[in-house]
């Protein structure tokens, strides 16, 4: 009844206008990047017709391709690394009932609110301090450190929803503590683990700040590579690179939302973050 009457109600023009402006502000620049990546001429202001020459430029630019591969590699390794460490941390924290344990749990979430630039500077100081040569390895180490908290938050959420009796049931039915973890707890967590892994992949893949502070000279992660190349004039090839990154990130995000549902869950692990 109320839903129907609301539908009949006139929408205030101001609200519609604000919404339109908001979405235009949000997505028009991105749409422009995508559009001009298909421009047939080297202009960033006039569109002269459809072409894929900038994609060809991108594919033939060995530096850019190396950077893209590097970024995918960093994201994949970081996702796996953060997943292993973050899950271990979540399992440990869920078993600690003391006040100290809860305090430790709160501290592990600090990376979520620490300004990334602070983390970046700190990581740079650490790596140079211990004499570690800046490279893709240092980028990956920094990204893993930064991403553990995301995994821990998601996995702890799923663990909290899981009754402690489930693990006891496994032990009751003949599992050692280790078997209970392997045969029951971890399989139950699979949707959360997949969601968390894909989320970390997407976050790390296009991360600029941490990568900028911790990368070596060559090869550089893609976002850093793009940043340094536009300082010497913007080539439309950058638009093509941006579009590729956009599609990749979106694809991973969609997977992160869909895969847990395929497991027969009503809620995806990402709901924790999107608040849906």
């Amino acid at each position: 009844m109320s839903a129907r009457s609301r539908r009949v109600e006139r929408r205030p023009a101001v609200a519609v206008a604000v919404t339109v402006v908001f979405f235009a502000w949000l997505y028009l620049p991105i749409a422009a990047v995508v559009l001009f990546s298909f421009n047939s001429v080297k202009s960033l202001s006039t569109f002269r017709g459809f072409s894929t020459r900038w994609y060809a430029d991108f594919v033939h630019d060995a530096d850019l391709v190396t950077s893209l591969v590097a970024s995918i590699g960093i994201a994949a390794v970081s996702a796996v690394g953060a997943l292993v460490l973050g899950t271990m941390l979540a399992l440990g924290l869920s078993r600690i009932r003391s006040r100290t344990g809860r305090a430790v749990g709160a501290v592990t979430l600090l990376p979520l609110v620490t300004p990334e630039i602070v983390t970046g500077v700190a990581a740079l100081l650490l790596f140079t301090g211990v004499g570690l040569k800046l490279s893709l390895v240092t980028v990956t180490l920094a990204e893993i450190t930064f991403s553990i908290a995301y995994v821990t938050v998601i996995v702890r959420g799923r663990l909290a929803a899981m009754s402690t009796e489930v693990e006891e049931a496994a032990r009751d039915l003949g599992c050692t503590p280790w078997q209970a973890l392997r045969l029951v707890t971890l399989p139950t967590l699979v949707p959360a683990l997949l969601g968390a892994g894909l989320l970390v992949f997407a976050l790390v893949f296009d991360d600029f700040v941490l990568a900028f502070f911790t990368t070596g000279v060559s090869p550089q992660p893609l976002p850093v590579r793009i940043y340094s190349s536009i300082r010497f004039g913007v080539s439309p090839a950058i638009n093509a690179v941006g579009t590729v990154m956009l599609v990749l990130s979106a694809l991973v995000m969609v997977l992160a939302l869909i895969v847990p549902r395929l497991w027969g869950r009503k809620s995806s692990s990402l709901d924790l973050i999107t608040g849906a």
Binding site: E165, V166, E168, R171, D172, L173, Q179, V184, P187, T188
Partner: peptide
């Protein structure tokens, strides 16, 4: 004796079924 080597089994209040099986 640890639980997995006792000849008893439990029906839990929350049932504690394994959702992935």
């Amino acid at each position: 004796t640890p639980p997995h080597r006792r000849d008893v089994n439990t029906v839990f209040q929350s049932y504690a079924l394994f959702e992935h099986l």
